[in-house]
């Protein structure tokens, strides 16, 4: 292979970064500059937009709310997916293929289909506007994702290890906790990161199931931002802050991006 600058890839990366760059510079501009003349960098950079978002509880509680239900969802999804993925990777049983497909089909289901029943069921259970409600709703796609990713990690561990541990007198529980879990730990971390992101980016359900106390930042942007629809600068700062988890995430799991996004099917 010859060494040369990869032109196509570079052009692609630059094009992808243009909208992000535009958002980024707008967040440091004033509205007067944004709607005045077109400027390609902030001529009078200001931190006022960030100060406004981060000092107003009505705004920054949106990040906290989203973080809370996302973390609850990750804990729930990964916890129930670990044994399920183990079961799928190790055993054959009546309906295994059908069930494994069933989880995939749930991942593919449009959130809009489940919106109305969720609102009704969670109203009955008094769980509207609770973090747990959103966390449970988001598990319909995150549990399947976690099972599919983890199944790939479990299948990569040879079952002979378990068999020799059994010969050495380990029970099923200690095989799981002392032998399998340490080996699968990186896989669990990758799965948790992906569940975190897939729940972080969803808004339709998160918005519909919350009213005040558990509203995520995205919904606050449309509501407060909708009132101040000309306040592009403020909304841009709020948007940039929502990108931070993704940017931290991608640095940690850059080696596993294909694996996570392909539901564990491409390594």
């Amino acid at each position: 292979m010859k060494r040369k600058i990869p032109l196509a890839a570079t052009l692609y990366v630059v094009l992808l970064m243009v909208p992000i760059y535009w958002l980024f510079i707008m967040s440091f501009k004033t509205n007067a500059e944004i709607f005045g003349s077109l400027t390609f960098w902030p001529h009078k950079p200001t931190l006022e937009n960030y100060r406004a978002v981060l000092s107003d509880y009505a705004w920054y509680k949106g990040y906290l709310n989203a973080a809370i239900y996302v973390c609850m969802n990750v804990a729930l999804s990964v916890l129930v997916a670990i044994p399920a993925a183990y079961g799928f990777s190790r055993f054959r049983f009546f309906g295994d293929r059908f069930l494994f497909f069933g989880f995939l089909a749930l991942r593919m289901t449009a959130p809009a289909i489940l919106l109305i029943p969720f609102v009704q069921i969670f109203s009955e259970l008094n769980m509207i506007d609770t973090h747990l409600g959103v966390a449970i709703a988001h598990s319909f796609f995150n549990v399947p994702i976690a099972i599919w990713i983890l199944e790939g990690f479990f299948s990569a561990i040879p079952p002979e290890i378990e068999e020799s541990a059994k010969v050495d007198g380990y029970g099923q529980i200690s095989i799981f906790s002392k032998i399998l879990l340490p080996q699968i730990a990186p896989g669990i971390a990758v799965t948790a990161f992906f569940c975190f992101m897939f729940s972080w980016v969803e808004l339709l359900l998160a918005n519909a199931l919350t009213t005040v106390n558990a509203k995520p930042i995205g919904a606050i942007m449309t509501r407060l931002g909708g009132v101040l629809s000309a306040n592009v600068a403020l909304l841009s700062a709020a948007s940039v802050l929502t990108l931070i988890p993704g940017i931290i995430f991608v640095i940690f799991v850059r080696k596993h991006l294909a694996r996570g996004f392909s539901l564990g099917q491409v390594n």
């Binding site: 049983f93 749930l106 489940l114 449970i136």
Partner: peptide, 22 residues
């Protein structure tokens, strides 16, 4: 893969969650 009819127990937690959420 071993044939194991008790494997359903491993799936039970996940199935209970998607029962509610899907």
């Amino acid at each position: 893969k071993r044939q194991n009819r008790y494997a359903y127990f491993y799936l039970l937690p996940a199935i209970s969650v998607v029962l509610v959420s899907a």
